[in-house]
Design a protein around this nucleic acid. Structure first.
Lengths: 206, 206
DNA sequence: CATAAAATCCCTCAAAAGCGGGATGCAGCA
DNA sequence: TGCTGCATCCCGCTTTTGAGGGATTTTATG
């Protein structure tokens, strides 16, 4: 019995690349692809693949959210996240939302096959590069987790507001904003606001 | 005589996708691919394609720079930029550096063929989506152009250095750094440093 | 209900950024 | 030769931040 495979990715070249790579493989049945989260969900209503390769960047909603929806509706489907290298900060979120693995888009056919095989056995698969970056960046230890308020303050800082302006916007005192700011600097290990924004952008927090 | 094609992209799936799409086409000869700027330049020493598809994000250096080098060394090679949709701010730079066209990674084979055909005739080709985004975002009017010094200062600001630290690093006075900082704020229409870094990141300047 | 985490607020003081000027030297160019 | 853009440097003054604290109230959660 062949393993059925479905792909969600809005980049046609990537879809075509995987199809081409998988065509040569025994035991893999390509049952289709979608370029949006909506059309993916529509397809799944009629048929579910064993393994679902899912890009993190989709035009209508993020793969993170789609992953959660899919796993809620069809827990038996194994989801493998797919993205380019600079989006590794999403890996943890993806796994938190039920994904079984993570592939970088420079993976070759053997790595894809290995990923499919691993997740079909109920284990987790990470691209070697992904895994190493996770280790390097300390993501495995959980990337700095910001509270709701801290995220709000961070967002407004990045928009160029000062503490007092942020205070007005959030109906709190400037001192409080300052405290949040200090905590942000500490959590993200930033020397000052400029570095804070840079690091936050690098971690896709903005 | 078939048109020779070479690809630089660090995502194997994309390379494979294009190869698969092009294999079915008449008159296209795939002469190879590279995953880094360095290996691309090495290949070009021995052989030059008619058309060079080039990803903008490469591991060792940006496609923007590579494009300029390639066009300097081999002006007869037509370069077509390749990237995903959120990197459109690079399109103008790519074209400035001598690229003849721009394809988004969700292009299908007909669009790729059309692009190759168009640039081989010496004309410019933009993906419809790319063209529309260029119009929308006013990129065609040219995004703010920074001087060499301003770029250096911007980089160091984003790393969290203060004016005096930057001054030490660049062997200039803190006052000068301050002037560059003022000019950066003005050019990028930023209210303060935080917004400056955010905007710079949005424009892929960092 | 106890406890921890989050959110709130306050203080001081030094350092840095931001604002609004002005000014000089130098290179490329019409 | 005069113009323009770039890079360099300086002044005074205000605002904002960053680095130390300390403290209280809310809100989850076992």
């Amino acid at each position: 019995m062949a393993i059925t495979l479905f792909i969600v990715d809005d980049h046609y070249m990537v879809v075509e690349g995987i199809r081409s790579l998988m065509q040569a493989e025994q035991g893999i049945e390509w049952i289709g692809h979608a370029s949006t989260a909506a059309s993916c969900l529509a397809f799944l209503q009629s048929r579910q693949p064993d393994v679902l390769l899912m890009d993190i960047n989709l035009p209508d909603q993020s793969g993170i959210d789609l992953c959660q929806q899919v796993k809620t509706l069809y827990p038996q489907v194994f989801v493998i996240g797919l993205s380019t290298f600079n989006q590794v900060s999403f890996i943890q979120k993806m796994l938190d939302n039920g994904a079984s693995g993570y592939l970088l888009k420079n993976a070759g056919s053997s790595e894809i096959m290995q990923a499919i095989d691993t997740v079909m056995h109920g284990r987790q698969f990470l691209s070697i590069e992904a895994a190493s970056v996770v280790r390097q960046s300390g993501l495995a230890a959980g990337q700095p987790v910001l509270t709701r308020r801290e995220k709000e303050v961070l967002q407004l800082i990045a928009e160029g507001l000062t503490n007092t302006e942020i205070a007005d916007r959030l109906y709190i005192s400037a001192s409080t904003v300052d405290t949040h700011r200090k905590n942000l600097l500490q959590k993200l290990q930033a020397k000052n606001t400029a570095a804070l924004v840079k690091i936050a952008m690098d971690h896709q927090m903005l």
